[in-house]
Design a protein around this nucleic acid. Structure first.
Lengths: 214, 214
DNA sequence: TGTACATCAGTGAACGCGCGTTCACTGATGTAC
DNA sequence: TGTACATCAGTGAACGCGCGTTCACTGATGTAC
């Protein structure tokens, strides 16, 4: 059972993270300020150092949170009668999450924050969406265009059990296409180009799915 | 013939832009500081206002420069015996430009700079790469998988003369795939995923080209 | 060609602001006996 | 159950720094007559 201190610590940590999320949404990662965060929480600026040893550690916490949130959204959305239905559902969930959380999305899939180097802690959380997509394609086991021999060796080995060298290039290309499309839409590159974003997105999802044997 | 004043003005403007480019590469767009720029040029901080009315205008100039640079790189690379050769050459040129100019790349294709709204001035320059790619596909005129009827109406009309409703979705998806792949590589998402980036990139380029009828 | 005036690049001081981080401290909470 | 001590959250002042923008000014350059 947690002591009063432990409980208070957990609560304040959460308050700081909530304020940081709000800051992130308002001004972006590069301008995220510890002083503004503590001001919103009602603490004196130096107090944050009892919880996070530096601004970078706070950023890292936000990054892991974001990867976990989009990963969880993808995992939850993985349902449907056919592999293609599951696939499209996951794509849509990622897109919806990005639209509802543009600042965290930009934090993890946009340009890197200058002067900040992501520690290795973020890697496991970062892979969750890719894993969901790859698993659907693996389970479907449909036909995939055979990649040229050189390409089969271009990828890191043992990415995921069951992900064959035939399927992997298409899966990674699809994964890239997903975030490329979501990012382009979110960051304004489809302005005056794509009119009906929903329809176009679903089409891209299905086309990429087909390339992965769905 | 330019007066001494006009000449000096052009030279100083170029010096300011050069210093701004260096700043951008060092600290990123969000942290780009007018004072640091003028310091590097050897001017007093207020002098920059004789050349750019505000920090945002300077950013806009850098953005247009960047779009024009990558657009020019794409246009120059558009040569080869076959449509597919031209296509792959353009893809590679964009990737090379991004690798040599990561900060400008992030400025235009990364997360938007917080608090900065891109003015319409940037739109013509922004379309140059897409135009090069679309033109190659149009001239090739190869077979393209027919998109479902709903998708044919999902895009903005009159994107480019000759870009049919059949071809347009594949072209936009390819264009997205190009920048998605380049961005993922540049921003570290292929860490521990793609080993031989050159080979994988070319494969993606050819696959996207095939989808556009090359 | 020379003179009178207008233009405008660059100066330097100032305004008002914000930042991350350190440090000695107080006082509440927790723990060992 | 009570007491003595250790832990640690939060304070408030300070350090040293940087920022964008305004404004009255000087002095060189350009222009009209």
């Amino acid at each position: 059972m947690p002591t009063r201190r432990e409980q208070a610590r957990a609560e304040t940590t959460e308050k700081i993270l909530a304020a940081a999320r709000a800051q992130l949404a308002e001004v972006g990662a590069a301008a995220l300020s510890l002083r503004a965060v503590t001001r919103e929480v009602g603490l004196v600026s130096s107090a944050v150092y009892r919880y996070f040893p530096s601004r970078d550690e706070l950023l890292t916490a936000l990054i892991i949170e974001a990867y976990d949130a989009v990963g969880a959204a993808a995992e939850e959305a993985d349902s449907g009668d056919t592999a293609l239905a599951r696939w499209v559902s996951v794509w849509r969930a990622v897109r919806r999450w990005a639209q509802e959380n543009p600042a965290p999305y930009a934090l993890i899939y946009g340009s890197p924050v200058p002067g900040y180097a992501a520690p290795a802690d973020t890697l496991p959380a970062a892979g969750r969406v890719a894993t969901v997509l790859a698993r659907i394609a693996i389970e479907a086991g449909g036909p995939v265009a055979e990649p040229p021999p050189a390409v089969r060796n271009a990828l890191a080995p043992d990415l995921l059990p069951g992900l064959t060298a035939d399927l992997a290039p298409a899966a990674i290309a699809a994964f890239t296409q997903l975030f490329g499309t979501v990012g382009f839409e979110l960051f304004g590159q489809y302005e005056n180009v794509v009119a009906d974003r929903d329809v176009f997105f679903d089409h891209v999802a299905r086309t990429a799915g087909a390339a992965c044997g769905l």
